[in-house]
Design a binder for these strands. Structure first.
Lengths: 205, 205
DNA sequence: GTCTATAGAAAGATAGAC
DNA sequence: GTCTATCTTTCTATAGAC
C-alpha cells in the first residue's frame, strides 16, 4: 500500500475544496467529474475512491462550504456584539464575496441549484440554514430587542442579496444592493448607528 | 401555407409558458429541448422554427416570467398604498408561490441558475430586477419615509426568502421564513401595523 | 410549421493495469 | 490510490419528408 491514510484524507479535502469552488461558480450540471478532478490535480478515475457519486460530493461540498462561510463565523471574545455584527455584514455583503475573492457561501451561491435538486440535497441545505440562524441567534440573544424572526429575515436578505448580486451584470447596481442590504440588516437588528458603506473594499490580490 | 401567423404566435407562447414553468422548477441544464417541447405538446424539431437555440428561449422566459410575476403587479386605483403593499407581500411571500401554485417569479426561482450563466443572460436579469424595483418605487414614492435603498433591500429579502424557501425541505421552516420576511418587509417599508400571518393560505385547486 | 431520423459531442460510471 | 480505456446514455442541433 504505497498511499498512506493521511494522503487519502488530504486528497479528499483537495477534491472537496475544488467542489466548493466549482459547484458554487458553475452549478451542479455544469461541473463534470472530469472538471472537478482536473481542478484538484487528478484524473476522472480516481474520483470514485473518495466519493460514491457526483451527488455525494455535492452534498459534502454544501456542508463543508457552509461551515467555512463568513456567515458561520464565531464571535471572538475581544469583540463587542455590535463590532461583530458589523464585521459579519461587511464581510458577507461585500463585492469580494460576490466575486468570490473570499470563500463563497453555498447557502447563497447554490440556493437555486439546490432547490432544483432532490430531497436529500435539500435536507442538507435545510440543516445548514438552521445551523447558521441558530449560531447568530446564540450570539445576539442577549440583545433583547432582536427576535428570532428578525434574524431569519436578515439572513434571508443577506443570502438573497449575495445571490442576486451575482446574477446582476452591473457592478454599480450590485454595490448599491449590498450597501442597502447592509443598512437594512442593521436596522432590523436594532443597530442603526454603525452604518458602513464599504462594499467596494477589495482584498489585496 | 397551412399555418396562420396567429397559430405560430400561439405556439410560440405555449413554448414560452412551458419554458417559464420548466426552467423555474428544474433549471437550465435539467430541461432538455425535448422536455420543453413535449410539455408544450410538440416535438423536438419544431422548436427551431420559434427560437434560435436553448439560450434564446431561456432569456425570453426570464423576461416573460418577470413581467407576469406578482412582484411586478400594478396597484389598482381603488386600493390604498398600504393595502396594495400587504397584498403584494402576501402573494409573493406565500407557500403557494414557493410551491409554484401561482406563476413562479424567475427573479427568485432562477437566480443562481442565471448567476452561473453567461453575460447576456445576466444582463436580462439585471434589466428585470431594475424594472421591478422601479415599479415598486414609483408606487411608494409618495410615502416619504421610504427610501430607494429600503426598497432595494426589501426586494432582495423577498426574492431571497422565496429562493431559500424552495431550497428548504421543511415546510414549517419555510412558513416561518415567509412570515418573518413579510413582517420585516413591512417594518422596512414603514407599515408595521398591518402584519399578517397567512403564508399557509392555499389556493383552491 | 411540424414531423422523424441522425450526426456529433459530452458526461457518468465501471474495468483493469500499475 | 491513481491511471487510461471504454461502455452507455443523453442531448443539441441539423436534414429532409410532408
Amino acid at each position: 500500500m504505497p498511499y498512506s491514510k493521511e494522503h487519502k484524507k488530504e486528497t479528499r479535502q483537495k477534491i472537496l475544496n475544488s467542489a466548493i469552488t466549482l459547484f458554487s461558480t458553475h452549478g451542479f450540471d455544469q461541473v463534470s467529474i472530469d472538471d472537478l478532478m482536473k481542478h484538484a490535480g487528478l484524473t476522472r478515475g480516481a474520483f470514485y475512491a473518495h466519493f460514491k457519486n457526483k451527488k455525494a460530493v455535492y452534498a459534502k461540498a454544501i456542508i463543508a462550504g457552509a461551515k467555512q462561510s463568513r456567515i458561520n463565523q464565531c464571535k471572538p471574545v475581544d469583540m463587542t456584539l455590535e463590532e461583530w455584527t458589523i464585521d459579519l455584514l461587511a464581510g458577507y455583503l461585500s463585492i469580494d464575496h460576490v466575486y468570490q475573492h473570499i470563500a463563497p457561501c453555498p447557502l447563497a451561491f447554490m440556493v437555486t441549484d439546490i432547490a432544483n435538486n432532490e430531497k436529500e440535497i435539500r435536507a442538507t441545505y435545510t440543516r445548514m440554514f438552521k445551523l447558521i440562524n441558530k449560531a447568530i441567534l446564540s450570539q445576539l440573544k442577549d440583545n433583547s430587542a432582536v427576535s428570532e424572526e428578525d434574524i431569519l429575515a436578515t439572513t434571508a436578505m443577506m443570502i438573497g442579496s449575495v445571490a442576486i448580486g451575482r446574477a446582476l451584470n452591473d457592478e454599480t447596481m450590485t454595490c448599491r444592493l449590498l450597501d442597502s442590504s447592509r443598512a437594512a440588516s442593521l436596522k432590523l437588528l436594532g443597530l442603526e448607528k454603525g452604518i458602513i458603506k464599504d462594499s467596494l473594499i477589495k482584498s489585496q490580490t
